[in-house]
Design a protein around this nucleic acid. Structure first.
Lengths: 160, 160
DNA sequence: CCATTACGTTTACAGTTGTAAACTTTAGAA
DNA sequence: TTCTAAAGTTTACAACTGTAAACGTAATGG
């Protein structure tokens, strides 16, 4: 499993069909995506082509057509994408974001129980290091005196 | 706050500087991003230009230069992006993903406590509806039938 | 007042993405 | 065996991204 993926939104639609069925023909992928997004065969073909050339899909020939499979794992792939996004903010703010996600995600009792257990086993640290580049996070404003040379900015309101 | 954002990775770097300082000059943004990513003034100018034309940044003239500000909120913006990504998988699988994120996110005791509280107040539902288009999720294969393995994900076969 | 400077605006250009038509190959039908 | 339709491959093309040079303009130091 690669370190970094780059599967576009449209490509992801194709992947989902393959993930859902284990293996699919282009015909089936087209049927689903034509229904869901109104895409033409051509469009789906292009996407399949791009995915196979990136080696995210594999084509096995069977008589007249190809059967597509993938070795990528769906949740795993999404984790990679999520991590990319989470890298956009200060690691200190991530727990808040998770709280938000937990709040807004519909779940059943078992899900909640599972999360509770994860939380109970969760090891905490004394301090989460800020991983931001100086000037991209307020955590750094109190680190030194070499602050920015321009003028009045801040408002160091939040911190979380 | 808009429903949907589209801030590219490079643009996000600029936004972070503005978010961190409340308001910045292009000089300061350039200084930070030249340090962090080696970007030239030109590059930063382009990004600032794109962001202002999308109205994500506002330019207020002050003597010779502009001062940039934003009305976007950083965590809020990230939430929007995250929600986009989470839409890529079946809503029934999201709790598992959250568990993974909770596990891997470094946090302090307070963070954990906060999450615990959120979880304790979390309302659960009897069943989380699958929001996938048929053919893109295995949930649909047993729509009416017996529970068996209810809403966890399991391996499947494929139809055709 | 003029050249220099600092900043903003236009233009550039290749790579990616969304969307699809046109073309080619080939397995099966006649 | 030749024709045809399905499946795959090439080409297309505009919008968006990453990255930046070139250009225009206004303030500033002489």
């Amino acid at each position: 499993m690669p370190e970094t993926l780059n599967i576009s939104d449209a490509e992801w639609e194709v992947m989902r069909v393959v993930w859902a069925s284990g293996e699919s023909t282009s015909q089936e992928i087209t049927r689903v995506l034509n229904g869901k997004r109104g895409w033409s065969q051509s469009t789906v073909k292009t996407l399949i082509g791009r995915l196979t050339s990136k080696n995210y899909l594999h084509a096995r020939k069977e008589s007249r057509h190809f059967i597509y499979t993938t070795h990528l794992d769906e949740p795993e792939s999404l984790k990679l994408e999520l991590e990319g996004l989470l890298g956009r903010i200060c690691s200190r703010k991530i727990p808040n974001l998770l709280a938000y996600l937990v709040e807004k995600t519909p779940m059943i009792a078992q899900d909640r129980a599972m999360l509770e257990e994860v939380l109970q086993n969760k090891q905490v640290v004394a301090e989460v290091p800020c991983d931001c580049y100086p000037g991209q996070c307020t955590c750094h404003l109190h680190a030194s005196g070499t602050i920015l040379s321009d003028q009045s900015h801040e408002e160091i309101t939040h911190e979380n």
